[in-house]
């Protein structure tokens, strides 16, 4: 078991208990969040889109740990 501390543009510090074989995408899916168009990071590591379907174990999260799963919307810089 792990504790996932979730932060998105609309959710702050939501604590979720999860199994190690769950994936970031499964967490997002449970909460009705679509991470496409967002930068997702876990414990300071920015995830590539294909990594969202890796299990927490595959993402090197250890049993009993508390991990930070963050989602930030990709927005354009500049003026146009």
């Amino acid at each position: 078991m792990i504790t996932v501390k979730l932060n998105t543009d609309s959710i702050r510090d939501k604590m979720i208990v999860s199994e190690l074989d769950k994936t970031p995408n499964s967490i997002f899916s449970t909460l009705g969040i679509n991470p496409s168009g967002s930068m997702v990071s876990i414990d300071g590591r920015t995830l590539e889109s294909h990594e969202l379907d890796l299990t927490f174990e595959e993402l090197h999260v250890k049993a009993g740990a508390t991990t930070s799963l963050n989602s930030n919307v990709k927005a354009d810089g500049g003026t146009n």
């Binding site: 990071s41 354009d76 810089g77 146009n80």
Partner: peptide
């Protein structure tokens, strides 16, 4: 912390419409 993460997002971005 989310604000800092958003600054990372901004750094990873280039807006091609801003020619």
């Amino acid at each position: 912390s989310q604000a800092v993460l958003q600054s990372i997002v901004a750094t990873k971005n280039i807006n091609f419409r801003d020619t």
